[in-house]
Write a protein that binds this DNA or RNA. Structure first.
Lengths: 130, 130
DNA sequence: ATAGGGCTTCCAGCAACAGGAAGGTCAACA
DNA sequence: TGTTGACCTTCCTGTTGCTGGAAGCCCTAT
C-alpha cells in the first residue's frame, strides 16, 4: 500500500503518517522507487494510533500503549495506569473549562450587548474588585 | 517599575511580559540603562491581560478586548460577541472532553489492572468492533 | 511527449510561552 | 575599591502535534 491508501483506510492525513514515521511510531518498508510500502500491520498500528489520539492520549502515551500492546509480558495494570493518568488530566481540564464557562456565562448575561460602550465584561477584566 | 516588580504585581512571569511586548500587546518605556520602565498604565494592562488569559481568551482575543477597552466608541455588542464566541469554543471543548472521559471511564472500569496481560483497553484500541 | 496525479524531502509556521546562555547593571558589603 | 549576587538585557532553542508549501521525482494515460 502507498501512503494515500493507508491514509484513507486509517482515516489519517498522509502528513500525519509521515510525521509518525519521523518520530519512530511506525517504520514502514520502502519500495524500489523510494515510496513507503505499508503492510497490513502498519495499517493496523496506524488505526490503533488514530483511535488512541482520538481519545486524547498524547503521542508519548500512544508510544507507550503501542509498546505495551506488542509486549506479551505486559500487565494490564500498566495500561490502566496510563489511562487513569490521562483521565485525571482530562478531568482537570474539564474542571478548568467549567470554571471559565461559569464566569463567562455570568459576564455575558450581565452585558447588554447593544450599541452603548458600557460593558461589565470589560469592567470585570479591568477592575475585578470594583 | 522594573519588570520584576510588575511581574509580581500582575502575577505574570517576566518572560511572559517580555513576550507580550514582543507581540505588541504592551509598549513599556525604557530607562537610560536599557531596562524596561513600566508605568501604572502598563501594569494595569498586564493585569487585564492576565485576567483575560485566565478566562481562556486567546492572545488575539485579548488584543481585541484591550483595543475595545481603550476605544471610547466601542459598543458592548462587540465585546459580548467575542465573549460568546469564546464561550462556544469552551463548550465545544468541554463536550469533546466529556466524551473522552465517558469512553475512558468505561474502559478503565472494564480493565482488571492486575498482573495479567489481558486488557480491554488495548483490545478496544486495537480492534474496536470486536 | 506531455499532462496529471501521487510520491519524496525539507523548511517554515502555528500558540503561548519556558529554559538557558552570554553578558550588562546596580546596590550593598567588606 | 573590589566583588558578590540579584536583577536586567537579547537571542536561540524547545515544547505539542501536526499543517502548508516549495522543489522535484515517479507513474500512468493519452
Amino acid at each position: 500500500m502507498n501512503i494515500g491508501d493507508v491514509a484513507e483506510r486509517a482515516g489519517l492525513p498522509a502528513k500525519t503518517i509521515r510525521y509518525y514515521e519521523d518520530i519512530g511510531l511506525i517504520t514502514p518498508a520502502r519500495s524500489a522507487n523510494g515510496y513507503r510500502a505499508f503492510s497490513d500491520s502498519d495499517l493496523h498500528k496506524l488505526a490503533f494510533l488514530g483511535r488512541a489520539r482520538a481519545l486524547g492520549f498524547s503521542i508519548e502515551d500512544c508510544r507507550a500503549l503501542m509498546q505495551l500492546y506488542e509486549d506479551e509480558h505486559r500487565t494490564s495494570a500498566e495500561v490502566r495506569d496510563i489511562a487513569l493518568h490521562h483521565l485525571d488530566r482530562i478531568e482537570q481540564k474539564i474542571a478548568d473549562l467549567s470554571e471559565m464557562r461559569a464566569t463567562l456565562t455570568g459576564l455575558v448575561k450581565s452585558c447588554a450587548g447593544d450599541s452603548r460602550p458600557d460593558c461589565p465584561i470589560l469592567e470585570s477584566l479591568a477592575n475585578p474588585d470594583a
